[in-house]
Each structure stands twice: as structure tokens, then as C-alpha cells.
Amino acid sequence: MNFIIKKNEEVSNLKCEYCGKEITLEESYEVKIEGKAHYFCCDHCANEFIGSGNNHACSC
């Protein structure tokens, strides 16, 4: 099998919108609010961001 892999085609690194931790699309929790996608490192941060958190610390 031959691979010809392009480099840096699409950078998917991003930051958790609640705690700021660097994450990738692959490991992110995605929440759509009013049609816009927001990305978080864990479900706790997502809950805190949308105001329904239970005050647990970020779990990762």
C-alpha cells in the first residue's frame, strides 16, 4: 500500500472554550448553541459553559 500524505492540510487543534486547555477536534465535546458549534475538553466544562454545571472540576 502506498501513502502520499499531505502535511498540515487541515489544522484541527483548538482550545476548550471553558478552561482553555488545548484539545483536538477528535477529543472534543461539541455543543451547538443557536446553530454555532462550541468545543470543550470534557462534559463538565461544556456544562459549566452553558450554565448548567454542578461545580465539579474539569475532569481531564
Partner: peptide, 15 residues
């Protein structure tokens, strides 16, 4: 899953 439960303030994940 947690993704399905986002928005539910009474959920805790035990890992």
C-alpha cells in the same frame, strides 16, 4: 453518554 447528557446539571461521570 455524557455528550447526550450535556445540559443536565445533575450528572456526574465516574471514570
Amino acid at each position: 453518554t455524557s455528550s447526550e447528557l450535556i445540559g443536565n446539571m445533575y450528572v456526574k461521570s465516574l471514570k
